[in-house]
Structures are given as structure tokens and as C-alpha cells.
Nucleic acid binder design. Structure first.
Length: 493
RNA sequence: GGCGUCUUGGCCGAGUGGCUAGGCAAAGGUCUGCAAAACCUUGUACAGCGGUUCGAAUCCGCUAGACGCCUCCA
């Protein structure tokens, strides 16, 4: 029996603001689409947080033995910097500034994106399609929308007719906006001439002569509208209706709203059952922005080379920090927060690394089965990683108590404890074990064992000057000795 | 201006009508030659003001503040 039959999860659905029981369209199979990055500059931490949230969701669904197809796109077609009918797209702009081809920009930052995600120990998605690889599919969708009467052509461009759509459907269903309000509140944009109404959005844009990224279409040489690629790729790989669509909160409107409209206008069906939105990452209480200097690159966290942090942090520490907040909460990235998480992370790892050396007893003083289910309950409740982590700390406490002799565990329970804590910590949360290791069998361990024995002799002889010298100098070298009831162990790092 | 979200103990951060979140920091204790680590104990928090209720941090209203979206953005 697959695990998902005994562990039922609830997902907060942005569509109705409720936690709902998750029931995939096809039992046992899950289709999940997440809006990926536009590759025109280095990934920033906010992107990382969003994708991390869905990495966890992907990992957990897989752990529950669902067959998951996870599609996360790369937006490599440039889109305009604003919604006016003129202006440069961001990739082209970057290309011009650096005097390179747009596709060089795309390549450079796609590689950067993958590198950073690898460093953070992300699982690759099942399919990672690109927008430029699906121009034909996008054109086909536009044709359909035109045929269905929800789009109009003007001067080689094609626009989605929001008012027309709203007559039979509801534009704003996801973001809870009313079209009337949008009309009243849309700012007048200069140079806007082609659209019938300001809230209409482009499906196809005719390219200006200097525009490099362009493709032929029935309407003009041009490029697709930003919202269209996700509709094209999600439909192609997951079908007209699929289970989960995710992205950052800031994409809810207009991007996801437009995706729904496009899909409905094409297939007359709601495309997605569960919409999920990851909340924003801010820094020191404010939005991250390059322009104000309130900004940090992922690599700077690993190197410590940024004025907002006081030291370098392991990727797993940054990951742990982010997972200590729920994905639907705004998270404030601060040095103090990182520092606190780092200590907690090492505490958890130290306990996990102790497990192999625990003594078992004929009875268990802790209910491991119950604890294990609490770990599942946390994740089943809309992927509540902070609560899961709290439970993992309880597990760490059990381990330490057993080591101290203030708790006991049977061999069977210890196996369950081990498999549960490592599965959740490494497979589901995607953390990596620290460099710290308890005594192993390598040369370093042998050498440290010799020093530990020398120190022991010195202590027996009450030569505390020598014993403390050994302890302190090892500490300086990054090796910490821990005196316990059953002798001395050590950790590195 | 419109729409929406949020405001929890020293800090971070869960929860949500009555029952300990957790981490970090702090205090006391056990252990130790001394430390460190670990373990035990300690905090009685939920922006303010009203209302609903037997009971609210949790529901409703108002006020204040923060943030997001409304224009590219994860």
C-alpha cells in the first residue's frame, strides 16, 4: 500500500483561501507546475525561497509515493519592462548593456540558476521547459483564443479581451479582484494605443525593428506575451487540467490570473485544482532591492562577503533557516536569524550523528511511533516545515537523553527513530549532514583518538595544564572534544 | 486611491475558540578538575480599544502600524 493512502495531506488553496484535502485528478499521480525564473540576472534569494518551498512539496509528495511530474519552466524569451506598448525587454536590455547575444544572457543566467539550486541541494524538476522552445504551442493557443472570440488583433499584435472574457467567465477569480475596480484603478500609461482597454494583456507583440528576439507568426514577426508561456507549457506537459500550480505570491496577479483566463478561453475549463503561493522573503524588515542596497546574492551567503551578514553560512544552514518559517509567511532574512538557525542546525546534526552509538534496552521510555506520526502530521498539514522541525528537535532530545541514560529505547524503536529522522531531515527537508562527524575509522579519527588518550592520561595525572592545552588547541584546529559519561568523543568543524 | 495579507514572550518563528510549539538568547541546577556539550527546571506572550461567547491570542468591528499587489518581479 503506498504511503499516500495512510497519510492524507491538506493544501491551502489560494483559489478559495481554504485548506482542502488533497485529491489528485488521477489517484496516485500528481502534476505540478511552478513558474520558474526569467534568466536575465543572477537568481536572487527570494527566488530561492519560492523554489525551495516547492522543492519541499515535491520531495514530500514523492516520499508519499505519488508519481509526481514536476514542471518548472525557464523564461528565456524577453518580456517588456512595462505594460506599455513600447520599451525593451529585460533580456535584450541586458544583452545590449553587455554587448552580447540575448541567448548568451539566457545561457549565463540559466547556468547560474542551476548552480545555485544545486548548491542548495534542490532536486531537479521532471521537466524544465523553456519559453522559446514552445513558441509554436503558444501561437496555437493564441489562434484558439481568437477563434473563441476572446482576443483581438491590432497592428500585428494580439490582445486578450478581458471585458469580453468577463461577460461569460470571471476575471479576478484567483486574486479576488473585480474587473470594475480594475477599470477604475488602472493607471494611464503613456504610449498606450493598441489596447481596447488598459486591463487587456498581450498574447502576441509585434517586434520593433531593433528587437532581436523575434519569431514569425500569422500576425507579425514578434514575440509572445509573458503570461502565455506558462499556459502553453503546463498544458503541454500536464494536460488541460492538472493538480498543483505554484509560484511566488507576487505572481498571483496579474500573471496567474491571466493564465487562468487564457486556459479558460482556450479549453473552457479551469486549468488548476490547487493554486499555491509562496510568500515573500524580505531582508532586515524591508523588501530586497538592488537599488537600495538591501540585497544579498546566494553566493554571498556562502562566502560571507556581504555587509548584511557577519560570517559565511553553509547552504544547509540557509536552507534550514528558511524552512523554519512556513512557506505562506513572510520571512525576514537577518544575520541574527541565521546565527540562531546555525546553532539549531548543528544541534540537530550532532544528535543525528550520535545515533549509531546509542545503547538499546529492553523497553522504550519514549513513544517513537507516536512521535513519527507527529512528523507526518506536520507535513500533512499544508507542508508545515516549522512544526516538523520542532518535532525533529524533540527527536534530537530523545537521542541525547538516551545517550545520557535518562531515557531508554529498544533496538526496534531505535531503527524506527533513525530511519524517520534521517528521512525527514535529509530526504524531505533536503538538508545535508554537516561536516561534523563522530568518531569514524579514518586517519583523522585515529589521530584524534591518540590525543584524547594522551589528554586522559594527563587528567589522571592531574596535569590539567597539558590536558587543557590539548583540548584548546584541538578546538582552535576545529575539533571539539566532548566529555561524556562513557568517555570523550569529538566533532569537527 | 483600490484590493489583499499581516502585527505572538529579549530575538526568530509555529499555532488558532478552553490543553507545553520549537530554535536562539537568559537564569538556576546535574555532570565536570575547570570548561564545553548534553540533560533537568524557569518565561506565562499573543498591537490597542470595543463586541460575540461559559470561555478569545484564536471569531466580529474599529483604530494604529508593517508588508504585498495594483507596472517587470519568486
Amino acid at each position: 500500500m503506498p504511503l499516500y493512502e495512510s497519510q492524507s495531506i491538506k493544501i491551502y488553496n489560494s483559489l478559495n483561501g481554504e485548506k482542502q484535502d488533497f485529491e489528485p485528478i488521477i489517484p496516485g499521480y500528481v502534476g505540478m507546475y511552478v513558474c520558474g525564473p526569467t534568466v536575465y540576472s543572477n537568481v536572487h534569494l527570494g527566488n530561492v525561497r519560492t523554489f525551495m518551498s516547492f522543492d519541499i512539496i515535491y520531495r514530500y509528495l514523492k516520499h508519499l509515493e505519488y508519481k509526481v511530474r514536476y514542471v518548472r519552466n525557464i523564461t528565456d524569451a524577453g518580456h517588456l519592462e512595462n505594460d506599455a506598448d513600447e520599451g525593451e525587454d529585460r533580456i535584450a536590455k541586458k544583452a545590449r548593456l553587455e554587448a552580447i547575444e540575448p541567448m548568451e544572457v539566457v545561457q549565463r543566467y540559466t547556468v547560474d540558476f542551476h548552480n545555485i539550486l544545486n548548491t542548495f541541494n534542490f532536486l531537479p524538476p521532471s521537466i524544465e521547459p523553456t519559453a522559446t522552445g514552445h513558441i509554436i504551442e503558444q501561437i496555437e493557443i493564441i489562434k484558439n483564443i481568437i477563434d473563441n472570440g476572446f482576443a483581438y488583433k491590432v497592428n500585428g499584435s494580439v490582445y486578450f479581451d478581458v471585458l469580453k472574457y468577463n461577460e461569460s467567465k470571471s476575471y479576478g477569480i484567483l486574486s479576488k479582484r473585480k474587473v470594475e475596480d480594475l477599470i477604475h484603478n488602472t493607471r494611464a500609461l503613456d504610449g498606450q494605443s493598441d489596447k481596447k482597454n488598459p486591463q487587456d494583456f498581450a498574447l502576441w507583440k509585434k517586434a520593433e525593428p531593433q528587437h532581436i528576439m523575434r519569431w514569425p507568426s500569422p500576425w507579425s514577426d514578434g514575440f509572445p506575451g509573458w503570461h502565455l508561456e506558462c499556459t502553453a507549457m503546463s498544458t503541454k506537459y500536464l494536460g488541460e487540467q492538472f493538480d498543483i500550480h505554484g509560484g511566488g505570491m507576487d505572481l498571483k496577479f496579474p500573471h496567474h490570473e491571466c493564465e487562468i483566463a487564457q486556459a479558460e478561453a482556450t479549453n473552457d475549463k479551469a486549468p488548476v485544482n490547487y493554486w499555491m503561493h509562496a510568500n515573500m522573503l524580505i531582508m532586515n524588515g524591508k523588501k530586497m532591492a538592488k537599488s537600495t542596497g538591501n540585497y544579498i546574492l546566494p553566493n554571498e551567503i556562502f562566502s560571507g562577503d556581504n555587509p548584511h551578514i557577519t560570517k559565511a553560512y553553509l547552504p544547509s544552514v540557509a536552507r534550514f533557516f528558511m524552512l523554519q518559517a512556513h512557506y505562506r509567511s513572510i520571512l525576514d532574512f537577518t544575520n541574527n536569524g541565521l546565527l540562531a538557525s546555525e546553532k539549531g542546525y548543528f544541534r540537530l546534526m550532532d544528535a543525528i550523528n550520535l545515533m549509531d552509538n546509542l545503547k538499546t534496552s529492553s523497553t522504550s521510555s519514549v513513544d517513537i511511533q507516536n512521535w513519527r506520526q507527529k512528523c507526518y502530521d506536520a507535513m500533512n498539514d499544508d507542508f508545515n516545515t516549522p512544526v516538523l522541525i520542532a518535532n525533529l528537535f524533540d527527536g534530537a532530545k530523545f537521542i541525547n537523553q538516551i545517550k545520557d541514560g535518562s531515557a531508554t529505547i529498544t533496538h526496534e524503536d531505535l531503527d524506527l527513530l533513525k530511519s524517520t529522522i534521517t528521512t525527514f531531515t535529509f530526504d524531505i527537508l533536503g538538508l545535508k549532514n554537516s561536516d561534523k562527524e563522530v568518531v569514524g575509522s579514518d586517519k583523522l579519527s585515529s589521530a584524534v583518538e591518540i590525543l584524547i588518550n594522551l589528554r586522559k592520561e594527563a587528567r589522571v595525572n592531574k596535569d590539567f595544564a597539558l590536558s587543557d592545552k590539548i583540548r584548546d588547541e584541538l578546538a582552535e584546529a576545529g575539533i571539539q572534544l566532548q566529555d561524556g559519561k562513557d568517555g570523550t568523543t569529538f566533532t569537527t568543524n
